[in-house]
Design a protein around this nucleic acid. Sequence first.
DNA 1: GCTTGTGAAACGTTTCACAGCA
DNA 2: TGCTGTGAAACGTTTCACAAGC
Lengths: 241, 241
Amino acid sequence: MASDEARAGLPDADRRPGRVAHVPGPSVRRLSLYLRELEGLLRQQRRTVSSLQLGKTLGLTDAQVRKDLANFGQFGHPGVGYRVEEMIAQIRRILGTDRVWNVLLVGAGNLGRALVSYRGFAGKGFEIVAVLDNDPDKVGQKVGSGSELEVLSLESLAEVVRRLRIEIAILCLPSEVAQPIADRLVQAGIKGILNFAPTTLAVPGPVALAGVDLAVHLEQLAFQISAGQARTKPPETPHAT
Amino acid sequence: MASDEARAGLPDADRRPGRVAHVPGPSVRRLSLYLRELEGLLRQQRRTVSSLQLGKTLGLTDAQVRKDLANFGQFGHPGVGYRVEEMIAQIRRILGTDRVWNVLLVGAGNLGRALVSYRGFAGKGFEIVAVLDNDPDKVGQKVGSGSELEVLSLESLAEVVRRLRIEIAILCLPSEVAQPIADRLVQAGIKGILNFAPTTLAVPGPVALAGVDLAVHLEQLAFQISAGQARTKPPETPHAT
DNA sequence: GCTTGTGAAACGTTTCACAGCA
DNA sequence: TGCTGTGAAACGTTTCACAAGC
């Protein structure tokens, strides 16, 4: 651990577009929420929005919204606010969803099949392009809202990842097999894993990891109800597992 | 007096005797992860675990683990660590999952039906005891792993919540109807809502709220992959297979 | 008028380091 | 020796307050 040299007080000379120095994690998480709100405003034909308005629906202060967005550049227009369409394009570019990511889904159980049919990814920059499962009964089945995907055997994992240039995988598997499958995905060159198994995965540093544990979210509700009763601040909480 | 009394915006006060004074939000979130790890250790017949061991699998420091647990009392045994079984019982008590919560699921689409069949809630203190849907074609259908639940009409919402003493609802609905249904749930006396619709809900202060937006999680992965490349909260030295 | 962007202050969380106990 | 619990220091995030621009 390097001790801190005199690194305070230096003016940030790094203001080149495209290169962003250091962004707080919470800011990045909120970026997705801003995007969601802005897309809603666009559907309502709204042209601009102020930091105060944007923050109000999300339970944030106007200063927070401005600081968050200012982390990535100067997008606002004083006296006007933020232009909805422009801001959407900028956030998509920042998040990296201004292009389509090919996604692999592993595990065609109830949850897995539901995700393949999930409409919420449409227009968000993600497309599930392959589904794998272990179970011989499931292999060969057609899945998806239009039944356009065929479940493939796990044996084809590496081949599918490479052939379809897949960078993100969603794991809907029993806890016991999640880690070995994650290992195989990493080996095959996957860059990010979204894990729905209720277990902690270990992956090498450069591989991105996010976890969604349904029971965990319910537990947080139970705590808020029984202990807290007062609301804590942030609604959304993605937490790496 | 410009700003002294002006802080009344956020409800926060909870200083009842017998209740734990003020616990950082991040600590509470990690509590669920500790519980999950401890339950895994119990299955492996482990009797005790140190803060260092517990933290390592989760990518946390030992000091962090100790501080988190110390927020709620003194549970550790110097020179020994934490007794697995005892700690599980304590965390369940703290989270409020040392009893069973009746859960209502609203929306019997793909995702909703998958959650009803989801085995991960078993033994975690949550039981889905009713399923509602709008669609006349779905009403009357049997759902659940053993097909033991019948989908009921939305009209029975308030009656079902009261009769079955339901305190938590899971929303698997299109964004457009999520808010009106949330309003009806609040009206019926629900205490917490887990929202899977990709929209921001507004609920009165005393009602607990959590949201899971699948697109948001994928966006965070996309950002980590394209911008970050380095992990935000890195567990140290990783190892591939 | 209204609204952004931004230093500086306020606040919250994590890490450090060590006393104390088994 | 091994480990917890805890003040204090380090670090990170949010809020404040206001100059500057539309």
